[in-house]
């Protein structure tokens, strides 16, 4: 399998994630779609590492995993705080900072 196929799969997964972030309104599902986009980036990074023959891309993918875990932790904490205050779990309704 040539490496272009992997890059094509990565592009398709990334655009599915983009569409999910635009269409869905539940912040939980939006976080899941962000995970999709980060994983598509990871696949591209690992593919480029294989193309280049060095492990730098794999290290980069692992750091992206760490950042994704941090983002998930903080995002889920915010969602728990939102649902504790009985606010609607919906990104269109949460516009308190709107003025």
């Amino acid at each position: 399998m040539t490496l272009g196929w992997y890059l094509a799969v990565s592009a398709i997964i990334f655009s599915i994630g983009v569409g999910g972030v635009l269409v869905r309104r539940n912040p939980l599902v939006i976080l899941l779609c962000l995970e999709l986009m980060l994983n598509a980036g990871n696949l591209a990074l690992v593919t480029f590492a294989r193309m280049h023959g060095g492990e730098g891309g794999q290290i980069f993918a692992l750091i992206v995993m760490v950042v994704a875990a941090c983002e998930v932790t903080v995002g889920l904490g915010m969602i728990v705080a939102i649902s504790r205050r009985n606010l609607p779990v919906d990104v269109d309704e949460l516009h308190e900072l709107n003025g």
Partner: peptide, 22 residues
């Protein structure tokens, strides 16, 4: 976005695109 990414990735002049890797 998907079409644009595929054009940008597969249409690029990267020599490794059509190879099995290093």
């Amino acid at each position: 976005v998907a079409i644009e990414l595929c054009i940008a990735l597969l249409g690029s002049a990267l020599s490794g695109i059509n190879s099995q890797g290093a």
